[in-house]
Design a protein around this nucleic acid. Structure first.
Length: 591
DNA sequence: GCCGTTTTCGGCCCGACTGTTTTCAGTCG
């Protein structure tokens, strides 16, 4: 049996290799679209194969359906195998070089007979690339620079790092003369977990553009100006980030904001909708189409906001974090809004570490910091005993910690502070699926988060078996960071996430959204499945110090991307309701 | 390769910027 992720990955490979093989662009894109569709499914592809409904799916015709069927039955996809034979492995890495695309990759490869990035760098240095028709000195120099940059920096960064670049620039540009509106756009506005480039958008009258660009390119963070035109400029920061700034007229701002927020997939759907309604949508506005189908730019629709633009396309305004081409457009055709959790609705901080294990602050300090931030309860969840590297608690230490928590509770009570502290634990799930303490001790906790910290690369069946046993354990109320991933550093465990979601939903066990920007795990891409299954979650900062509590914001935004409203988030419950849920009582989930 | 409330063929999102060119192709977002 082939799982959806695996199939989508193969289809993506076909797309990439077709570009490098110089195949028809649209044929290649068809495979990319099919991959997108498969990824968004909440049922396994085999279900569609068996019922013969695969070709009912958007972007999957008889040809790709056959490729998928063959792959599912034989584990091999002939169209992919054929491409792999024709395209050298090394070329795939060339696509990461910014400024170099498939056309020139094919040209350089064919003319010079080279396949490795290092060979390409040499060919740029010794003039062979510059001598090719259509390329020149500057192209060679640009490619070489990109290769060198690539070797020093990873292409993407965490959303937290991107915000550190974007927010100061935003502040400085706000103060620049002539700036009427300014917004962060791109994947950062959509709250994606990793970010490539930072996009900024400004509304200003043209006469002011030059001064605004001066402010931008002159900022102290800037180490290189990559380009500067009339309306667009790009810079690189000392941290290696590329930032693009676009300036448009105020009347163009709404359309430009939609356009630069993306995603690409979302924009394509919007443009198609505009076409279907006799209009053309571009970054400058929404225009009636003339007889040739081009935009009649003399008659722009008047737009004062994104909302109006969506209205013209018979849609309600779609929050940026949902604009991922995963069914949001269909939803907002018939709904005015989607119920989504807000930061204010989170009431408790229920996954945090203290000095008892690897946290930096005491129980009392973490509690006071939570109170300052407006939370009404917290759950202390230090590491269990086998997490030796993180100072996991022995049975004896657990009991001492309980005493300390009781002392803090008493102290608060004497100070007249209303704040609830739950005694929790982040228990390791051991290799055989059992937990890290005897059952009678586990019963003594208010709640248990079960997480895997060891043996994360076991085969899928073993991993699933471990999680199943943990979910079935009566003391366990939450699963922590299910895939174990560390973004940009470590991959995910091999899991059947749909199955895991179903098991957890059956037991009313929550799967946390770990809000630490290095994790953001559960992945929002499982949101549709989680919604169908009625999965509960908890937005958990996994804080190891006071500042870590603020990561809850990232968790809230990821929960919104995953379409959670507060009724399915256990730390949006009141302290009393949380206590009842932790005891295993049913909680009300809104339909 | 996919798709159709104008279409079973001929489109497929659209424009800025750059560099290599003399009118445009490639790349990016």
């Amino acid at each position: 049996m082939a799982d959806n992720k695996n199939i989508a990955e193969r289809l993506r490979q076909v797309h990439t290799l077709m570009l490098l093989a110089g195949e028809n662009r649209f044929r290649a894109i068809a495979f990319d679209r099919a991959a997108q569709t498969i990824e968004g499914l909440s049922e396994p592809v085999d279900h569609y194969l068996e019922s013969g409904t695969l070709t009912d799916l958007k972007g999957i015709g008889s040809s790709i359906a056959e490729d998928i069927r063959l792959f599912s039955e034989t584990g091999s996809m002939p169209v992919l195998e054929d491409l792999k034979e024709r395209v050298p492995d090394g070329l795939i890495r060339w696509l990461d070089i910014s400024g170099l695309g498939p056309k020139n990759i094919v040209k350089i490869h064919k003319e010079l007979g080279i396949t490795e990035v290092e060979e390409l760098a040499d060919a740029c240095r010794d003039g062979r690339v510059a001598a090719l028709p259509g390329l020149g000195e500057k192209s060679a120099e640009k490619i070489l620079k990109s290769i060198e940059w690539l070797q020093q920096h990873s292409q993407r960064c965490l959303i937290s790092e991107a915000r550190e670049v974007a927010l100061p620039l935003l502040e400085v540009l706000k103060e620049a003369g002539g700036v009427q509106q300014i917004e962060v756009a791109g994947s950062l506005r959509r709250w994606n977990e990793t970010i490539g480039d930072v996009d900024l958008l400004v509304a200003a009258d043209e006469v002011d553009n030059s001064a605004i660009f001066d402010r931008f390119t002159g900022h102290e963070m800037v180490v290189e100006v990559l380009g500067r035109g009339e309306t667009k400029s790009s810079i690189r920061t000392e941290s290696g980030r590329q930032v693009d700034l676009r300036i448009v007229n105020p009347e163009q701002f709404p359309a430009a904001l939609v356009y630069f927020t993306g995603s690409k997939e979302h924009n394509i759907v919007l443009r198609r909708r505009a076409r279907e309604r006799g209009m053309v949508l571009n970054e400058y506005g929404l225009f009636p189409a003339n007889q040739d189908g081009d935009a009649d730019s003399s008659r722009p629709m008047e737009l004062s906001s994104e909302t109006e633009l969506y209205r013209h396309l018979d849609l309600a305004w779609i929050p940026p974090e949902l604009r991922e081409g995963r069914g949001e457009v269909e939803y907002f055709e018939s709904h005015e809004e989607m119920p989504l959790v807000t930061p204010e609705e989170v009431r408790g901080v229920v996954h945090l570490h203290t000095t008892w294990s690897d946290g930096k602050q005491t129980v009392e300090q973490m509690a006071r910091a939570s109170i300052e931030r407006g939370y009404t309860y917290m759950g202390v969840t230090d590491h269990s005993r086998s997490a030796a590297y993180a100072g996991g608690l022995s049975i004896d230490e657990v009991k001492k910690q309980w005493d300390e928590i009781d002392r803090v509770i008493e102290k608060f009570s004497s100070e007249g502070i209303e704040f609830t502290i739950f005694k929790g634990i982040e228990s390791d799930i051991l290799a055989d699926g059992s937990l890290d303490y005897p059952d009678d001790l586990l019963d003594g906790f208010d709640f248990v988060i079960a997480s895997i910290h060891h043996g994360m690369d076991m085969p899928r069946e073993k991993m699933m078996d471990r999680f199943r046993k943990a979910i079935e354990h009566p003391a366990v109320r939450m699963i922590g960071h299910p895939t174990g991933r560390l973004l940009l550093r470590r991959g995910e465990s091999d899991l059947d996430m749909n199955q895991l979601i179903e098991w957890a939903a059956e037991h009313q066990t929550a799967i946390e959204i770990n809000a630490n920007p290095h994790r953001l795990d559960l992945d929002w891409r499982h949101g549709n499945k989680a919604l169908e299954a009625g999965l509960l979650t908890s937005i958990n900062p996994d804080a190891h110090n006071v500042e870590g509590i603020d990561d809850i914001l990232y968790g809230v935004m990821i929960a919104r991307k995953a379409k959670f409203d507060s009724s399915r988030i256990v730390n949006c419950l009141t302290a009393e309701e949380f206590r009842r849920w932790a005891r295993g009582e049913e909680v009300e989930v809104k339909e």
